[in-house]
């Protein structure tokens, strides 16, 4: 079996990953657990930024954020801002976070996601939302709990594509 990934295989994996996080973001959940939905797109992009040979460019994060804004019909630019800030922070502390153990990494992710909620708050307050409910602040914890498993899973799926670059 040839271990060297072809560019087309890499492209397909990327497309599949992005499609699956969009699916997870838009897929209907029962009303009770819906507010706890983790920020899947951010989790994927953070993994990507940490483990890929080079971090996700902020321009790409901005574009993906805009796509997410259009898809979820939120205030235009809200997710773009959130992802740009998040990936900037990841890029800043990349070399440190990369060498954390999974659970310490999860704590770093928690900090990032909580910070991100504060960023999203601006947009929501601008849009006139006043009552967020406690679940708004719990979703980051769900994201952080999922992180180690997601990390291992993505490692299986994506790491081989990056291990040997032509």
């Amino acid at each position: 079996m040839s271990r060297r990934p072809t560019p087309s295989r890499r492209r397909w994996t990327y497309a599949l990953l992005i499609a699956s996080v969009l699916l997870l973001t838009l897929m209907p959940l029962p009303a009770g657990i819906e507010p706890f939905r983790p920020y899947w797109v951010a989790l994927l992009l953070v993994y990507w930024s940490l483990e890929a040979p080079r971090p996700v460019p902020l321009g790409l994060a901005f574009l993906i954020g805009l796509v997410l804004d259009v898809l979820t019909v939120s205030l235009m630019g809200q997710h773009a801002l959130s992802l740009v800030i998040m990936l900037y922070l990841v890029g800043r502390f990349r070399s440190r976070i990369r060498f954390f153990s999974h659970w310490r990494q999860a704590l770093a992710i928690l900090a990032l996601l909580l910070n991100d909620r504060v960023v999203l708050l601006w947009g929501l307050l601008l849009a006139g939302v006043r009552d967020f409910g406690w679940a708004y602040w719990v979703a980051p914890f769900v994201g952080a709990l999922i992180w180690p498993w997601l990390f291992v899973l993505l490692d299986q799926a994506v790491r081989p594509l990056w291990r040997r670059r032509p």
Binding site: L58, A61, M76, G77, A80, L81, Y88, L126, A127
Partner: peptide, 21 residues
């Protein structure tokens, strides 16, 4: 460079949000 880009994209996003609003 990354900070400058953060500023650029951040500003762009905020302008978009304000315009959308």
């Amino acid at each position: 460079s990354p900070t400058a880009r953060l500023m650029l994209y951040g500003l762009l996003a905020i302008v978009l949000m304000a315009m959308d609003f």
